[in-house]
Every structure is written in structure tokens, then in C-alpha cells.
């Protein structure tokens, strides 16, 4: 028999297993492994037909269930009084199910928080405003990471004009050129600039990309440093030894 449930409703094998346990009203601490396994296998037959990639996670769980059943069927060795009682083969599975269940419950409550929050509207569409200069370039509290830099770069690329016409041309641009460009830009602006200011004048995406790589290279060499004036703020780029190199 096959239950009429949408398969995509299950987030994974643990989720499906929890559903079957609930559906059959069996006790989590005394799972009838063979019955649950049988029903579980019915599901993954369908899952396999639909989605081969995702099915592997489900099949792994099926193998686990069958292994547990096999273990339970094997005659137990006589209990040695000194040794501790052997663990029920279902125990590990129950532990995983419970661990998953905890977070599943939290996720459901978080969805409530999400809907509550989406009822509140904040002010938005602010004009571009003056970005405060960072007060302390080495403030450990600013949570600036390479990922922030990549993100800022992605946003700039998205704003860049899209070229729909395609023609092949060689664009003569090198990392060395763009290192020169970055340093010149910084020197013309008293040694520091906002990250997007550095890139917004460049028209071609390939030049933007090479410039970004050049910036990473300059950071690696320690000639340039990068920070954020606040957690949600823009990214600043600064020439590290710009006076001495002039």
C-alpha cells in the first residue's frame, strides 16, 4: 500500500522515517523495524523513479534499517555477567532520529518568527549616503571576511551594464596593469577609497574581474588593506604604506 503523500514534502530519510513512525503510531523507543523498513522501501522505490541524485541518501538509510533488522535477528551471544549489556541495534538510529527531531521542531517555530517578522516593514530605498570612514582599521569587532569582499564584488558585477551582443575581442588587461590602476586610484584619493568606487568606473566585466584579482594580490602582498566601517557597511580599501612608496 502506498500513502498519498507528496514526496517532496520530505526533507530527507530521517524526515521520512519520523513520518512513518508517527503514521503507524509506533513508539520511537520500540520501533518495529521490519514493518517500518517495508514501508520505507515502498517510498524509496518512488523516490528512485523521480530523483536519482537525492535517492542515494534515502537508500543509505534503507541499508541501515535492514542492517539493524539483521542484527536483531541474529542470535545473541550468551550474556557475560562482567560485560555491560549489549546496545540495542536500534539505539543509534533512535538517537539520530531524536537529534533530527529537535531541530525540525525548532525550524517549525522559526518559520513562525519569519512570518511574524515579515509583517513588519522597515524604511527602505535610502539614497546613497556618505559612508563614514572607518575609525579603527584593526577593530576586531568588524566582522569583515573574504566572503564579504566577494559579496561586494558580486553586487558590483550585477550593477555593471549587461552586454547582450557578443563579439570576441582580446582585451589587453593584466594583473600588473590593474595593480598599477588600483594604486594610482588610491594615491589620487589620499590613500583610501570605497571598494565600489574603485570598480564603478570600469566598464568591462573582464576588467572588473582582473581588477578584483589584482586587489586580492595587493592584499596578499600586504600593500593594501581592507575593512568595513560597520557590520552592514560598505567596504573600504586603503594603501598600507602609501606615503613611503610615493
Amino acid at each position: 500500500m502506498i500513502y498519498r503523500v507528496q514526496l517532496e514534502n520530505f526533507e530527507g530519510p530521517l524526515d521520512l522515517l519520523l513520518y512513518l513512525i508517527k503514521k503507524n503510531e509506533v513508539d520511537l523507543f520500540n520501533i518495529p523495524i521490519s514493518e517500518i523498513t517495508r514501508q520505507y522501501l515502498e517510498y524509496i522505490e518512488i523516490i528512485q523513479m523521480l530523483d536519482l541524485e537525492g535517492a542515494s541518501d534515502f537508500i543509505l538509510m534503507a541499508a541501515t534499517l535492514i542492517r539493524i533488522k539483521a542484527k536483531m535477528l541474529l542470535p545473541k551471544p550468551p550474556v557475560d555477567m562482567d560485560e555491560e549489556e549489549e546496545e540495542d541495534p536500534r539505539e543509534e538510529l533512535v538517537r539520530r532520529l531524536l537529534e533530527y527531531q529537535r531541530f525540525k521542531e525548532v525550524a517549525i517555530k522559526m518559520a513562525d518568527y519569519e512570518s511574524q517578522r515579515q509583517l513588519l516593514y522597515t524604511r527602505r530605498y535610502f539614497d546613497q549616503h556618505m559612508e563614514p570612514e572607518p575609525q579603527d582599521w584593526w577593530d576586531p569587532k568588524t566582522s569583515y571576511t573574504l566572503f564579504d569582499l566577494m559579496w561586494a564584488f558580486k553586487e558590483i558585477l550585477q550593477k555593471a551594464p549587461k552586454v547582450t551582443q557578443h563579439s570576441v575581442e582580446q582585451i589587453p588587461v593584466t594583473i600588473d596593469d590593474q595593480i598599477g590602476y588600483i594604486l594610482r586610484q588610491l594615491d589620487q584619493n589620499e590613500g583610501q577609497l570605497l571598494f565600489y568606487e574603485l570598480l564603478e568606473k570600469l566598464k568591462k566585466r573582464i576588467i572588473m574581474i582582473v581588477t578584483f584579482l589584482s586587489l586580492l594580490e595587493l592584499i596578499r602582498r600586504g600593500e593594501v588593506e581592507v575593512t568595513q566601517s560597520s557590520t552592514f557597511g560598505e567596504i573600504w580599501v586603503r594603501r598600507k604604506r602609501w606615503t613611503s612608496l610615493n
Binding site: E11, G12, P13, L14, G54, D57, R96, E99, Y100, F103
Partner: peptide
């Protein structure tokens, strides 16, 4: 990997 282990899915 730890997230996947708890969720039982990639």
C-alpha cells in the same frame, strides 16, 4: 558534513 549528518541528507 556535520549539518548533513544531523539532517541525514546532503
Amino acid at each position: 558534513a556535520e549539518v548533513a549528518a544531523i539532517r541525514g541528507v546532503n
